[in-house]
């Protein structure tokens, strides 16, 4: 039996489209059901990281300008380093404890998303990793306190050079450099562009 090839192609195309439409429907249903939950989880994980930087803070508010627009929203400081947002950490008397920077840096296996606190005396309070996709067992150790603790109380004017004043994670120089560089570049940018941060309080 000879079938018309054009007819055959159209028929197959229609069958495949039907399968794809059903799959797309299933996906969009799952997506819309899980989306609020996913956003909630992301918000929670950001909040948890901010809390781990300033455990005493009672509220975190986004730094805005006079028009209530968010300052420093997704600013690319240099290729690979992005400032996601800048928050002020206030204690229960609503006086400023420090600034929390949420930023990301291109690591070895994707973006490393992290937060860190800048104290008014221009030292780093602490660094915390929100999300990373580095090599398990190697770069993925970036979240460990044995690496992150060395940034605490570090002066922001330090040089932040891996293998000089920053001890890298064993066998993960690229990851270590990515995080160190991400902190340094975003801090420099903020100090330069955000007057309040340089004002001693």
């Amino acid at each position: 039996m000879k079938t018309n090839p054009t007819k055959q192609i159209v028929k197959l195309g229609i069958i495949l489209s039907i399968y794809c439409i059903v799959a797309a429907l299933a996906l969009s249903v799952t997506y819309s059901v899980t989306l609020p939950k996913i956003q909630e989880q992301q918000r929670l994980s950001t909040e948890r990281s901010m809390k781990s930087v300033y455990p005493n803070a009672s509220s975190f508010s986004v730094v805005t300008n006079e028009n209530n627009d968010e300052l420093f929203c997704s600013i690319e400081v240099e290729s690979g380093v992005l400032i996601d947002s800048l928050y002020m950490a206030n204690d229960s008397n609503s006086s400023l404890i420090g600034f929390v920077v949420k930023a990301s840096s291109q690591g070895y296996g994707g973006l490393i998303m992290f937060v860190y606190g800048i104290n008014p005396d221009k030292t780093i309070e602490a660094v915390s990793i929100i999300e990373q996709t580095e090599t398990p067992g190697l770069g993925a150790n970036v979240y460990k306190s044995s690496f992150l603790d060395q940034f605490s109380k570090k002066n922001v004017t330090d040089s932040f050079i891996v293998k000089q004043d920053v001890t890298p994670i064993t066998a993960s120089t690229i990851t270590s450099k990515a995080l160190t560089n991400g902190i340094k570049k975003s801090v420099d940018f903020l100090l330069e562009h955000h007057q309040e941060m340089t004002d001693e309080k």
Binding site: A23, A26, L27, T30, Y31, T34, K37, I38, Q41
Partner: peptide, 14 residues
């Protein structure tokens, strides 16, 4: 691919 994507949504959420 659909099941994998559904799985990823579920994991991200729960």
């Amino acid at each position: 691919a659909s099941f994998v994507t559904i799985l990823q949504f579920l994991l991200q959420a729960y």
